[in-house]
């Protein structure tokens, strides 16, 4: 199996070094993480412009993207996402972005997700979880941290009991999506969610991807208002 080619974009060199070492140790060894695709860090860049150039030349599968970056038009990770729109990886699949940030501010979360990131995790994430997240994103699935799930529930009014009548409705979550989001917010892994709801992991991933699509496409007013007026803590 070909390894997942990863580009690291973060303006803190210490953080890049740490992540690189951690990924190399986890994915390169023969431990329980050895199964599944290997992860190979092929490039790293400290700011928006360098990131766009690196991504264009390296054509990685996954970009680990910091939300706050210097350069570009001042929008950090969002600028990188816009600058790399339409690029494909060496294998021909679209380049996937996983947002990685210390910031839990809702406006940051919503901005990178709506700009096209496939997931959002905080920098305090453990190495194993990060590896899982990278593999998941590389497969085209979405990665939701408990916090992001809570945000989605809140922003879509699902916590207040609003449920979509049809799954295709963009402004509300379906009952099943809400259940999945609730379990993720409660700290369940995808496989635990699947077991809890008596569905397959693949179905869980489908639901999460569908929520991500709604998050990216929804014009729900509360979504932006919520992100502007509040910050996740």
């Amino acid at each position: 199996m070909t390894p997942i080619r990863v580009v690291l974009v973060d303006d803190h060199r210490m953080f890049r070094t740490g992540v690189k070492a951690e990924l190399a140790e986890l994915a390169g060894g023969s431990g329980p993480n050895a199964e599944g695709r290997q992860v190979l860090v092929v490039g790293e860049s400290p700011d928006v412009d360098a990131a766009i150039a690196t991504i264009a030349t390296e054509k990685p599968d996954v970009v680990l993207l910091d939300v706050h970056l210097p350069g570009g038009r001042g929008n950090g990770g969002v600028d990188v996402l816009h600058g790399c729109a339409g690029l494909v990886s060496e294998s021909g699949a679209p380049i996937r972005f996983l947002a990685l940030s210390v910031s839990d501010a809702a406006e940051d979360v919503i901005a990178v997700i709506r700009a096209g990131a496939r997931g959002y995790v905080t920098k305090t994430i453990g190495g194993t979880d990060l590896l899982t997240a990278i593999r998941r994103v590389a497969d085209g699935d979405a990665v939701f941290s408990p916090r992001l799930a809570g945000f989605v529930l809140d922003a879509f009014g699902a916590a207040a009991g609003e449920i979509a009548e049809v799954d295709e409705e963009l402004d509300r979550l379906s009952a099943r999506e809400r259940e999945v989001m609730r379990l993720i917010a409660r700290g369940y892994q995808y496989k635990e969610v699947a077991k809890e709801l008596f569905i397959s992991i693949k179905t869980v991933e489908t639901h999460v991807s569908s929520v991500l699509r709604k998050l990216q496409l929804s014009s729900r007013h509360e979504l932006t208002a919520w992100a502007m007026g509040r910050r996740l803590l």
Binding site: G126, P146, L153, R186, G187
Partner: peptide
């Protein structure tokens, strides 16, 4: 660890989970 806590306060009451 990790200890996760999720609290949903809504129209249907309050649900709190500690895992």
């Amino acid at each position: 660890p990790p200890v996760t806590a999720y609290v949903e306060i809504g129209a249907a009451g309050v649900e709190a989970f500690v895992k």
